[in-house]
Design a protein around this nucleic acid. Structure first.
Length: 551
RNA sequence: UGGGGGAUCGUCUAACGGUAGGACCGCGGACUCUGACUCCGCUAGUCUAGGUUCGAAUCCUAGUCCCCCAGCCA
């Protein structure tokens, strides 16, 4: 009996593991996260990571990080490195349990000979096209290979010569001898080994034959004594083969595969093939482009790992295919950041304001609260002067009924500063408002009127003389529709306005912001300093804006 | 009339024969030196048709719709 099992989380995988512990089937769970190092991890992987590492954590077991590196033509060291970085960033730790399927190549090779020796596998000389043609269709059975009944000795000899490198790519393959008429196509004599004269990131040129997924995965699980092999739904049809191999090999343990639905999100593509394409064809600026759903991209955008995990939890784990609204993700990010992020003021679309009754040469420093949600965050000084910038959207010459902000003759509060009243809007030749002439009430210093009068709006601002310039990158959804690719190629659904660059004016404290720390620009959203040279901020997510919605 | 899965508010998800609940979205309202946050309220669901049962989202039968599989990818 396990000492203590955590409260049920309400999803079937946790219940499954808990049940196996309670029944005594296992003493503690062993799971694994098994990415192929052929790309960067994305938010879909975060779900698999959360499930596998989360179960290990909650039930006091362990989770292995295992690279499923059985296809050298697609895999690179860069991806091996980035995957480890990203899993750590999410807050998980595999301890000493870092493994590679390639660690088991010798063992797997031996098991392949074992299968051959028992008549359960054979070398097929058919071409890839012939194998495909003879596999049959979804409704028609396949045809047995003419090489299917070779002798054990001949098969063994051929397999050893495959390993020695006597044959070029594609000459022949090792196949399991199962059932060419099976309704499950994975059981129609699946290919187990293929010839690949390719350099492997870890084993180099030691091998020229490589096991495929099916021949590597279950056995690797068994070698590592994995108890629960949790994978996504599309592997469901592989389970009979997974079990067949465990049945026919002298494996050290008996792992059990269970499948869950992978994560889908509106306005998002989570197919490695397409993500690779976006990077390769420069539709984005790299794997860590903040518009990408990669963990590297989300991190660079300023999304905190705990918010990401929270989202994964809220989206839930089930066996039904679903598409989660990206709004739920945004909500998780905002909820976390509202508590955690320090507040600053920055103006994205500056409109000059001159306080006519404020002395030309004067300036002063005003106290501003760093985080109203967190008193321990303290306060800072913000410089104020005669010339300021406010947001263009905060002024309207002819305001509609519910517009609370600045317009000719109205009074508003500049946050932490003074009440100001707009006296005049100065226009250029084109008739555009380029400057506001205002007056301030010195008695309202700090933001409150001694006479108790109220204003309907409080606006952010920066002092023109003290402002620092910054490039702010505003990210919009990468796609124009919630189901990109539904009509074919997702490239045609790419949002041409997914990146907006603005030259912003920021309060001076922001000049020394830390790269990677997400901050709030009051009334605008959350922003994170980029590592690019100069002062560059990425918008993580905007604040909710119920006023904009009424427009 | 190949095999394997799945259907619960608009979207995710809970319920394990006993009051269909939560979150997100949306819509109201209160509060507010962020039109943010917070708080309160509202809207809204068991794929269909039968059956078993005192009682069905849950069990049975028959349908319907959706997803996955025909790589020497994973």
């Amino acid at each position: 009996m396990p000492a203590a099992t955590p409260a049920a989380t309400g999803n079937f995988l946790w219940s499954l593991v808990e049940g196996d512990l309670v029944s005594g089937k296992h003493k503690s769970p062993v799971t694994r996260f098994p990415p192929e190092p052929n790309g960067y991890l994305h938010i879909g992987h975060a779900k698999a990571i959360y499930i596998n590492f989360g179960i290990a954590q909650d039930f006091k077991g362990r989770c292995h990080l295992r690279f499923d590196d059985t296809n050298p033509v697609k895999e690179e060291q860069e991806f091996i490195d980035s995957i480890q970085r990203d899993v750590r960033w999410l807050g998980f730790d595999w301890g000493t349990h870092l493994y590679y399927a390639s660690d088991y190549f010798e063992k797997l090779y031996g098991w392949a000979e074992h299968l051959i020796s028992n008549g359960h596998a054979y070398i097929d000389d058919q071409t890839a096209e012939e194998i495909s043609a003879n596999r049959g269709t979804l409704t028609a059975p396949g045809k047995e290979s003419p090489f299917r009944s070779r002798s054990v000795d001949e098969n063994l000899d051929l397999f050893r010569r495959m390993r020695k490198g006597e044959f070029p790519n594609g000459t022949c393959v090792l196949r399991a001898r199962i059932d060419m008429a099976s309704g499950n196509i994975n059981l129609r004599d699946p290919v187990l080994y293929r010839i690949l004269h390719a350099h492997h990131p870890r084993t180099g040129d030691a091998w020229c034959i490589y096991p495929n997924y099916d021949f590597a995965h279950g056995q690797s699980d068994s070698i590592e004594h994995v108890t629960h092999s949790l994978c996504s739904l599309e592997f469901e049809d592989h389970k009979p083969l997974y079990n067949w191999l465990l049945d026919h090999l002298p494996v050290p343990s008996r792992p059990e595969q269970t499948e869950f639905a992978r994560l889908n999100i509106t306005y998002t593509i989570l197919s490695k093939r397409h993500l690779t394409q976006f990077v390769r064809d420069k539709h984005v600026r790299g794997w860590d482009d903040p518009r990408m759903p990669t963990l590297a991209g989300l991190r660079r955008r300023g999304v905190p790992a705990p918010a990401l995990i929270d989202f994964i939890k809220r989206a839930g784990v089930a066996r039904a295919n679903s598409v989660v609204d990206i709004a739920m993700f945004d909500a998780c990010v905002r909820e976390y950041l509202n508590k955690a992020a320090s507040r600053y003021m920055g103006v994205l679309k500056p409109l000059k304001v001159v306080i006519e009754n404020y002395p030309e040469v004067q300036s002063e420093e005003l106290d501003a609260v760093n985080n109203p949600e967190d008193p321990s965050a303290g306060s800072r000084k913000v410089p104020f002067g005669r010339e300021l910038y406010i947001e263009q959207d905060d002024f309207m010459e002819n305001p509609p009924k519910k517009f609370f902000r600045l317009s000719p003759g109205t009074e508003v509060r500049l946050r932490y500063a003074y009440f100001i009243t707009c006296r005049e809007a100065v226009k250029n030749a084109a008739g555009e408002v380029v400057e506001l002439r205002c007056t301030y009430d010195p008695a309202t210093k700090g933001g409150n009127a001694p006479d108790g009068r109220k204003v309907k709006a409080t606006m952010h601002w920066v002092s023109a003389a003290h402002a620092v310039n910054a490039e702010v990158r505003i990210y919009n959804p990468l796609f124009t529709r919630p189901d990109p690719g539904a009509d074919g190629d997702p490239v045609q659904d790419l949002n041409p306005a997914s990146l907006e660059l603005v030259e912003a004016k920021l309060e001076p404290a922001l000049a020394t912001a830390n790269v990677g720390e997400t901050l709030q620009f009051e009334r605008l959203g959350y922003f994170c300093r980029d590592a690019d040279p100069g002062l560059v901020f990425n918008r993580t997510v905007g604040l909710r804006d119920t006023y904009a919605k009424t427009q």
